[in-house]
């Protein structure tokens, strides 16, 4: 559902209602196509990020995260495209600083914070788009053909003499490029692009 991703989803973990409200207002005024979700804790964030479409950015008050370095490292590893910024109300430990894409202070100007954040999110989302070339490669077409025949990853791997891991990565690319994830959807795609013929399915 790539076509839906023309807005940014931001999670805010900020215990102070007045600061949250300020962040909320500032971002809504600077950018209309965003959705801001108030999140109570880092655990709640992990739960929501697992279940739903991932967020593009999380804005976090570093003081809610004492001793949670491990969790943050894990989040950063699991969601490499997530922009992670802090708005510090007090001094932040240097080691912690390295976990963030950027650390702001509550005394920074609104324009500075929102513009910087927008740029960070854009940089990351353009990384997404770099492999967004619609046409499938020869190899991907081969995988697609076997896939819509009903073969599972292991069978495809054996047929093409590649590893299962490679099959999975091809499948990911196929879905990213076409925007289609179900097998029957991919079948229709393959027929409409004449990768296979409709008579193969009678």
């Amino acid at each position: 559902m790539m076509m839906n991703r023309h807005k940014y989803a931001i999670a805010v973990i900020e215990p102070s209602p007045i600061i949250f409200e300020g962040i909320y207002k500032a971002f809504h005024e600077s950018e209309s196509r965003i959705v801001i979700t108030e999140i109570e804790s880092i655990d709640e964030f992990i739960r929501q990020a697992d279940e739903q479409n991932p967020f593009d950015m999380v804005i976090i008050n570093p003081s809610v995260l004492p001793n949670r370095t491990k969790e943050i490292k894990k989040i950063r590893k699991t969601y490499p495209k997530l922009v992670f910024v802090g708005i510090a109300v007090s001094l932040v430990d240097n080691e912690l600083l390295s976990l963030y894409n950027e650390m702001f202070s509550i005394y920074d100007s609104i324009e500075h914070i929102t513009q910087r954040c927008r740029k960070l999110m854009k940089d990351y989302s353009s990384e997404n788009k770099s492999n967004d070339n619609e046409n499938l490669s020869k190899r991907e077409e081969e995988v697609l053909k076997l896939l819509i025949k009903g073969m599972v990853n292991k069978e495809i791997a054996q047929t093409l003499g590649i590893s299962t891991h490679t099959v999975i990565s091809h499948r990911k690319n196929i879905s990213n490029k076409t925007g289609i994830r179900s097998q029957s959807g991919l079948t229709i795609y393959a027929i409409s692009k004449k990768i296979v013929s409709i008579t193969d399915f009678d």
Binding site: M1, M2, M3, E51, E134, T178, G179, I180, R181, S182, S184, G185, I188, Y189, S192, K193
Partner: peptide
């Protein structure tokens, strides 16, 4: 419950992708 939900979302997304991008 949750599996069903993601299946439902996937199929609807596929239908839109087909109509917007692939079927002439």
């Amino acid at each position: 419950y949750l599996d069903h939900h993601s299946d439902i979302r996937i199929a609807l997304g596929d239908l839109k992708s087909l109509l917007f991008k692939h079927i002439n």
